[in-house]
Design a protein around this nucleic acid. Structure first.
Length: 200
DNA sequence: GTCCGGATTACCT
DNA sequence: GGTAATCCGGACT
C-alpha cells in the first residue's frame, strides 16, 4: 500500500481509504504509532460529516485536496485529527480514532498523565491528539510527504478488520452506517471494548 | 450580539 | 450510568 495508492483512494472513495488507513503509521517528530481505528465521514450524503453543509472557515481543509490534516476542537476540551478526502470542491474526511504506540512513549505518558496504562495513551480521538500534542497548529498540513514532521506512512499489508457503526452519531445523522473500522487483531488498542454489548 | 450543541473524556455514584 | 469540563464555529435574532 503505497502513498500513491492511498492518495488515489482518498480522492475517489473516503470509505475505502478509511479502512486502508488502519495499519498505517502516524508519525509526529519522535512520536510513532500504528493506527488501529478510523471512521469515514462522507460529505454530500452524510449528515454527521462537517462537510455535509456548505463550506465554512472551519471546514475549509475538508473541501480542499485529499491527504491533508483537518484538526478541530470539540466539547471545549478535545482536539480531533482527521485526513481530508475527495477532490477539491467536495468535502469528506477520516477521523483517526485510536492507535498503538510504538515510539516516544515517555512523552506520550507525560502528556497523558491520567492514562490508565499504555493501552490508554491513544485509545480515543481526544486522547490521541493530547498524547501527540496536536492542536490547530497542525491543521491543513499535507500528511503523505515522507519528509514532513507530521505524516502518515501507509501499511505494507492490508489489516484484518471489523466494521461497526460510528461512535457518537445521533439518530437521523447516519448512525446506522458501518463506517468505523477497527483492526481485528488489535482490539485492545481501540477506543471501545470489543465486541460491544448492545443494550436491551 | 447571542445562543446552542458537539465525531469526548474523566471522575463521580 | 450520569454529568461536568470548557471553547468555538455556525445559525439565527
Amino acid at each position: 500500500l503505497s502513498a500513491e495508492y492511498i492518495l488515489d483512494l482518498l480522492e475517489k472513495d473516503v470509505v475505502e481509504a478509511s479502512l486502508r488507513l488502519v495499519g498505517a503509521e502516524l508519525v509526529f517528530g519522535d512520536l510513532r504509532s500504528i493506527i488501529v481505528e478510523t471512521e469515514a465521514y462522507r460529505g454530500e450524503d452524510d449528515p454527521a460529516c462537517h462537510a455535509y453543509r456548505r463550506l465554512t472557515e472551519r471546514t475549509r481543509v475538508l473541501f480542499d485536496k485529499p491527504g491533508y490534516s483537518y484538526v478541530y476542537f470539540a466539547y471545549g476540551v478535545h482536539w480531533m485529527l482527521n485526513v481530508s478526502a475527495h477532490e477539491a470542491g467536495r468535502g469528506a474526511g477520516i477521523l483517526i480514532r485510536a492507535a498503538q504506540p510504538l515510539a516516544g512513549l515517555d512523552l506520550m505518558r507525560e502528556r497523558r498523565s491520567r492514562a490508565n496504562g499504555d493501552g490508554d495513551l491513544l485509545s480515543g480521538p481526544g486522547k490521541l491528539a493530547q498524547a501527540y500534542g496536536i492542536t490547530k497548529k497542525e491543521n491543513g498540513l499535507f500528511l503523505f510527504d515522507p519528509a514532513a514532521t507530521l505524516r502518515i506512512e501507509p501499511s505494507s499489508e492490508p489489516r484484518p478488520l471489523v466494521a461497526t457503526t460510528r461512535i457518537g452519531i445521533a439518530q437521523g445523522k447516519g448512525h446506522e452506517l458501518e463506517w468505523r473500522f477497527v483492526d481485528r487483531e488489535k482490539i485492545q488498542w481501540a477506543s471501545k471494548p470489543w465486541p460491544q454489548i448492545s443494550q436491551p
